[in-house]
């Protein structure tokens, strides 16, 4: 859990109070904290003068607007056909072994969450993953461990 503090106010100042400000506001909160807390969504609803159900309804439609707690680094492994054909399961297994978590879980220190996602547009360089916004491509089990160890040392 993170403290919303002035975050929502700051986002509203930046994006405005219109209905079409909602997505950019939610996206920026997720950009900073990787997921939306109930408190954050209720506060956004108040600022935009819409019901909290509207905010949650919108957020829950989008797979990148997580409403469950996520770690500092969200790893999304592409599972669509080409990545799946080119060794996605090996990549997933290597990450699970390294982080000692299963798909869908977050490490105890809240550093990493491991998820699957649909096609991220790197089929010619499969298998591919996203860590937050950054894509990593043409992975092997060895290469992906190096990538994640890099994040561990950040």
């Amino acid at each position: 859990m993170y403290n919303t503090g002035n975050l929502v106010k700051e986002m509203v100042e930046r994006h405005g109070r219109n209905r079409d400000s909602l997505m950019p506001i939610l996206q920026d909160i997720v950009g900073r904290h990787n997921y939306l807390t109930d408190e954050a969504m209720v506060e956004v609803a108040k600022e935009l003068d819409i019901s909290a159900a509207e905010v949650y309804g919108t957020a829950s439609f989008y797979s990148f607007l997580d409403t469950e707690p996520r770690g500092r680094y969200v790893i999304r492994v592409c599972k669509t056909i080409t990545c799946s054909m080119k060794g996605k399961n090996d990549i997933l297994g290597a990450i699970e072994d390294l982080l000692k978590i299963k798909l869908g879980e977050t490490t105890l220190d809240n550093q990493f969450s491991l998820l699957e996602t649909n096609c991220i547009g790197w089929c010619h360089k499969a298998p591919a993953i996203l860590i937050n916004d950054m894509p990593y491509t043409e992975l092997t089990p060895e290469k992906v461990l190096d990538v994640i160890k890099g994040y561990m040392n950040k």
Partner: peptide, 20 residues
């Protein structure tokens, strides 16, 4: 934000307007 359906034109408009 990770929704394939938003490539459909009217779904894309809904998304720009701040809806599902």
């Amino acid at each position: 934000s990770g929704a394939y359906i938003c490539g459909e034109e009217s779904a894309l408009f809904e998304s720009i307007e701040g809806f599902r």
